[in-house]
Every structure is written in structure tokens, then in C-alpha cells.
Design a protein around this nucleic acid. Structure first.
Lengths: 349, 349
DNA sequence: AATAGTGACTTTACCGGTTTAGCGGCGGCT
DNA sequence: AGCCGCCGCTAAACCGGTAAAGTCACTATT
């Protein structure tokens, strides 16, 4: 294929064709007052005939705004592929961006330092008008960096992690408590949790909430393991938890995402334990995956798409200077399915 | 948080501080010859002190190039979330883009018309320097549109679908044939396939290849179902295939992605059929998911990350005018695991 | 000694829009 | 009639860079 030496039609050509100045074309395309309807129509007709669309690069240079927001995700590719959360989140964000003809600049980064550098480059390079920050950690360096830059941003994470940034979060502590309370109500006394990546702030929050709930309910202890969110890690953790002799073996396990719960289910079956007879399993996030297993997985479910949309809307608020309030999205709710039941129902599968 | 009225440091400030002209600063930052080391150092020092980074918008306006490539994905959000393919593909693309400090503009679109409009807007708006096109269909309107625009692009799909566009593809026909041959070699005579979305070109190709292979091997027929790639659809299809009475029931099923295979596995178990005893299952793509089930899923596996990287590299070739050749990536290879075995081993689980 | 060549910069003309100041003409008001 | 104010539009400055042409001092060549 030979690349045609593109004709490069610019605003000047359109202006010439419509018999007006380029200022007039600009006014027409930005729906600003000051033009008669007749002229406006002539301009649009000319533009259509020439197949012209404004050069957004030039536009943002002179108008000092860009219709692009950034999203950098800092997790190993290996985990990302399977984590249904992100794609759904992104699709929620997209939905809102699209309505405002805004685009998403996506980048996967290897660590937070890289992300800080990237956000700075994006912002100083005037490539984005704001950014969505995810996966906060304790003392996250992005908080200070973003403040210093004065860049509009929305932090996805609990306010205790996101400093002065506008944030949107899920109330993980409450959700964890509900999960534990539910299992306890079923009669479980030995409940374990297979958590996510330890450095992540929300993991810490869930861990603390789990401990707290276990204590409050007077449970037999509080087994928790940190993983990297991968299925393999979830399988390993489950294997280790379930290989304890029955009196010490947990009768219920809560997972921090779907993948690990699926992996856990498979480990239980591989070890000859029935679910939920010998052990109850509770997943988190509740993607489609939870309904594809046998038994189906009970889960703490969550409107991830809506979460993304909310975050995007909030970001627009920040960008336009409305100073929207930080707020939580609806707390995940328990969706009981086939993987949870009172303990000791024990029939082999 | 009060947004600081950003100081707006420009190339002029840096030039002034370093005591040179802005042309010199430009030369320094673009690593072009014509400056003494001493001056270069002074410039960098000045830039560092002022915290300056070039305005990429201005740069691309005058240099006529942008370091951004586009990717529009046209699938319902619901499917995307779970489809491990895309995130892995994207991460492969990203890896290559990052080395060249290039960014990815991502957009989810609802239909091809929208995508055509988007690509045109992106290109005419000089927002991207090229695009990656995925999920081709027969008579795909994007082929003509992209040619008309003269936009550099790489099509992910078989050349029979992508017209004159440079393309990178997986040899699905060969892979399907291998899958069928393998199952036939195990002794299966009644093999079914749960395919992906019918309008997609690669689905058509696989369907034809499956028919062909079934005929060549003299199999008992060729059951194929089209779905939408979702787990639910995979489950429904499997349920329908397996509910035939034993002489007509397939003894092996090939799936077009992992999710559907996982769903199929669960349906088999729900119907009291053992895998691989009563029915063998073969997945496609081979994400982590295949190793998390019980039994583990045999799959046609595929270096999706590498695929993405290859596509990105090829796109750079097209952009720089090297006219790279269209080429296939390595054909998926069979990875036998626990879900495939000779038919009739039939012990209940 | 005159000429050519080179290295190190500077000057200046864009890139393709947006934006603001300005301007001619026309209707309304006094 | 004269002045004002507004409408509809144009001209020109500007956004922050890049790139090509120009300048100038200094060395090498003949």
C-alpha cells in the first residue's frame, strides 16, 4: 500500500472555500455566537465538502485544553490479564468520557516511581487534562507529586490513603465486616482470608477490618494470607490453609478477588473437600466468573462499571473546578450462591 | 485543594535562564548535533531547575508527529471484562510503545460505524500517528476507510479479511486443524466446537477449518455453535450439546476462548458428566484460568503478550514508512492438560 | 592573504488553530 | 441629522514548540 501524500486540509482551506476568515470558521465549529445562520451553514457545508476536521493538536495548543485523561496502572501484566476488574472499570470510565468526546490515555507501568514520572510528563507535556489514580499504598508518593503539579486528579482509594486528593472509594472495611458476619451467622468459627497484594492500601484496610470483625464476633482466630492476586497465589494459599488437620482447618475462606476464589475452589476439589460441605468459599468483585463455576461462587458484589463511571464524572468535576466532594460508591453487597453454607455439612462431592 | 495557578514555564524561560536561544534548547532536548557539551549541560541544568518539560502539544503541532497510537475495541463491555485476551494484548503493545515513549489512546466503541468515525476523527485531528485495528469481519468497512485516510495502521486479522492493510495474524485454520487432529488421535469421532461471535472473521475461518478437518478425518459430523464469547453463552451451548443422548452426544468439545471452556467444564459437572471421562474439553488462548480449574484445561496456547508486541512493532514499521510485510505470529500450540483424554474412559467423578 | 569550510548558535518563519481588538454598516433613539 | 450601540465579520497576535536558513568566529587549505 502506498501512502497517499495526505492533502492536509486546514482551517484556511475551509475558510477560503466558504469565503470567510479562519476566525469565522473557528467560531462556527465551537458553536460560539457572532455568526449569522447563513454563514454558519456555508462554513459547515464547506468543511463537509473538504472533509475537514479540526487539528486537535493545534486547538489544544492555543486553547490550553485537551480532551484526554490519563490512567496509569501499576501491576504486572501477568495479573492484569485475568483481573476482570480493570477492563470493567475502564469500560465504565470510557462510557462517561465518550459522552464528552474525551479520550483515555492508558499506560501500564512497572512501579510507582515510573508512574510519578509519567504523570508529570503527561501533565507538563499538556497531554492530559487530568488523571485517574488507582491502587494506592500507604504513604503513596503520588499524592505529593500530584499536589505539587497542581494536576486535576481523582484518586481511587480510601481517603486515609489519598491525602488531600479528591477520592472515590469502596467501603472495604464495612464489606469485609459484612462478609465475616455472614459466614459467622452461618455458624463458621474458623474463617480465613486470602488477601491481595500486601503493599496495597485497600489490602491493609481489609486485613484490619477482618481482624476487627473476627475479634468482635469472638471467632476462633483470624487467618490471613497476603498474595499477589494471581490464581496461582490463590491456589497456593488455599492449599496451605486447607492442609491443616480438621480442627485447625478453616471452614470458610474469603478471597480478595474472583480469580483466587476460582483457584481456591479447584484446590478444594483437588484435595477431596466438598464446597460448601467441608469448606465455604466467598469471592470478591463478582465478575461473570463467579457464575461459571460449579458450585457457583458466593461473592461480595460490586458495580465496577458504575464505579468507573462515577470516577470519571468526578474527575470532570475536578477539572472544571467544581471541587466535587470525595465520596464512597455503594458498598459491595453479599450475593450468596452455591459456595457458602453452614459448616459441617460435609458430604463428599 | 486549591489549584495553584500553574507557573507555566516554557522553552523561552529555559532559554533565558541558560542564556541561549530557544532554538538551542530545542536542539538540546531533541539530542541533535550542533551544540557544545558545555552549552548542552547548561541547558539541561536550567530545565531541571525550572522543572520544565516540553509541551508535547506544541511539539507535535510544529513537528507534524505525535507519539500516540490508537486502539479501538468494539465489543460489549460485559464480554471485555472477562476476556483475558485484551488486557494481555494491550500489555504486549504497551511494552513496545513504552520503549519508544509512545502512548496508547484507548477507546471502547459500540459498533464499527462508530469506530470508523473515531479513527477518522483521531487521524484528521492529528491525535494519533497510527492505529491498531482488531476484530475484523468479512467486508470490514475499516479497510476502505483507513485506506482512504491514508492512515498508518496494522490490522490484527487474516489477510483475507484485511484487504490491502498490513496485517498480523494467528493461523487459526492450522490451529483448529491441529486441535481436531489431536482429539481424533485420542479416538474421538464426535467432536463439537463452541465458537465465538459469528460476525467475526476469525470465527468464520475457524468454522470453515473445523468443517474441513472433520471431513478430512472422516469424523461423524461437525457440530458447531456460534456464541458471543461470554461464559453464559458457553454454558448454554455446552448444555445443549451435552444434553443429546449418548450416541449423539459429542465426546469432545473445542471452545473459542477460555471463559467458555471454564463454563463448559462447570456445565459438564452440573450434568453429572466427568471430564475428561465422559467428555473432553479443549480451551483456546490459554490464560492463567486454564490452570485454575479442576481438572486443568487442555488448551491451544498462544503468546498473546508477544502477539501484541509484534503488532506494535509492525505498526511502527508502517508509520516510519518501512512497509513491513504482513505476517502470521506463531500458530497456537496444543498444551494438553487434564481435560482431554480418549473417549469412553467414563468413570464418574 | 584570500577562500573555503566548519562548529556553535541565533533568527525567523512556520505549524493550525483560538481569541481579542477593531471595523463597517445598519437600525433606533433623541 | 447625528450619535450610539450592536451585529457580523476580519485581521492579527498568540499558543510553545520545530526546522531551515543565516550569522559569526575561527581553522584549514591553496
Amino acid at each position: 500500500m502506498t501512502t497517499v501524500p495526505t492533502p492536509r486540509v486546514t482551517i484556511k482551506d475551509v475558510a477560503a472555500r466558504a469565503g470567510v476568515s479562519k476566525g469565522a470558521v473557528s467560531l462556527a465549529f465551537n458553536r460560539k455566537p457572532g455568526l449569522s445562520d447563513a454563514t454558519r451553514d456555508r462554513i459547515f457545508a464547506a468543511a463537509r465538502e473538504l472533509g475537514w476536521a479540526p487539528n486537535l493538536t493545534a486547538r489544544s495548543l492555543s486553547s490550553q485544553r485537551v480532551d484526554v485523561v490519563g490512567l496509569a496502572i501499576c501491576r504486572p501484566a501477568k495479573q492484569l490479564g485475568l483481573e476482570p476488574f480493570y477492563m470493567e472499570f475502564i469500560s465504565g470510565v470510557e462510557g462517561v468520557l465518550t459522552e464528552r468526546s474525551c479520550s483515555l490515555l492508558l499506560r501500564l507501568v512497572r512501579n510507582l516511581e515510573e508512574e510519578v514520572g509519567l504523570q508529570e510528563a503527561w501533565w507538563k507535556g499538556k497531554q492530559i487534562s487530568g488523571s485517574i489514580l488507582v491502587d494506592f499504598r500507604a504513604d503513596d508518593p503520588r499524592v505529593a507529586a500530584v499536589e505539587r503539579l497542581g494536576m486535576p486528579a481523582v484518586a481511587v482509594g480510601h481517603p486515609s490513603l489519598t491525602g488531600s486528593l479528591t477520592s472515590v472509594w469502596t467501603d472495604d472495611a464495612t464489606a469485609v465486616a459484612e462478609a465475616v458476619r455472614y459466614l459467622a451467622a452461618l455458624g463458621h468459627r474458623r474463617i480465613a482470608r486470602v488477601g491481595g497484594a500486601a503493599p496495597l492500601g485497600h489490602t491493609t484496610i481489609r486485613t484490619a477490618a477482618f481482624d476487627e470483625a473476627a475479634r468482635t464476633l469472638g471467632l476462633a482466630g483470624s487467618w490471613q494470607v497476603a498474595t499477589d492476586f494471581s490464581g496461582d497465589a490463590g491456589a497456593r494459599a488455599t492449599r496451605s490453609l486447607l492442609s491443616a488437620a480438621p480442627p485447625d482447618r478453616p471452614t470458610a475462606i474469603v478471597y480478595d478477588n474472583d480469580i483466587m476464589a476460582v483457584a481456591g475452589l479447584s484446590v478444594a476439589s483437588e484435595m477431596g473437600l466438598s464446597v460448601p460441605g467441608d469448606v465455604s468459599l466467598l469471592a470478591w468483585d463478582d465478575s461473570q466468573l463467579c457464575r461459571l463455576t460449579h458450585p457457583t461462587l458466593s461473592a461480595m458484589s460490586h458495580d465496577v462499571h458504575g464505579f468507573g463511571a462515577d470516577v470519571a464524572r468526578t474527575l470532570f468535576g475536578v477539572i472544571t473546578g467544581e471541587e466535587p466532594a470525595s465520596h464512597p460508591v455503594p458498598t459491595p453487597v453479599l450475593t450468596p450462591r452455591g459456595s457458602t453454607a453452614p459448616p459441617g455439612g460435609g458430604s463428599r462431592m
